[in-house]
Amino acid sequence: MWPKEKIPLQDKLFIRVHKENINPKTGLPRPAAFKNTPASGLSLSSDWERYTTPEKSRELIGKQFKKETTNFKNPLFFFIVSVIVNDIYNLSCNQLIEYTPKYQNPEPIGDPNNRAHSSIIGDKTDEEIRLKFVNISNWEIKP
């Protein structure tokens, strides 16, 4: 439905951060926020700024089912950070960024279409990359 595109290096990606993944003392996302989703998966989901805003990105969370349930997520439990594509590549941690829009027809309940969906592909079990992600991220919707 939506053609593949290359994400420019200077563009932002929005990443959701669950409330449990925020350090209450520093107010920063914890390194745990930058695990792949799911943790055993190959990539971390994000939304490309070209096709969404932080507010819309958060709103869409409320249309998704919680994992392995038919209950919707509460978007208020999530906050949004942005990272610049080039900053991810500069981490030198073997990450690849791909534009991966989600489209299904009919659109399943609990798994909405998302034109902005992008994937940060690569292993994130490593402490180095997760720790460095914290310092290249900036709050768009902060707690």
């Binding site: 449990e20 993944n21 350090n23 003392k25 520093t26 914890r30 390194p31 745990a32 695990k35 989703t37 799911p38 943790a39 055993s40 079990t125 402490e127 180095e128 997760r130 720790l131 914290v134 310092n135």
Partner: peptide, 25 residues
């Protein structure tokens, strides 16, 4: 350190200062 749950069932310990940062899993 900040002691935090990680989605894979592990625990992160994070120390951070103006000079340095450290993550232990």
């Amino acid at each position: 350190p900040d002691i935090a749950a990680v989605s894979d069932g592990s625990i992160d310990l994070t120390w951070s200062s103006k000079q340095a940062r450290l993550l232990v899993n």
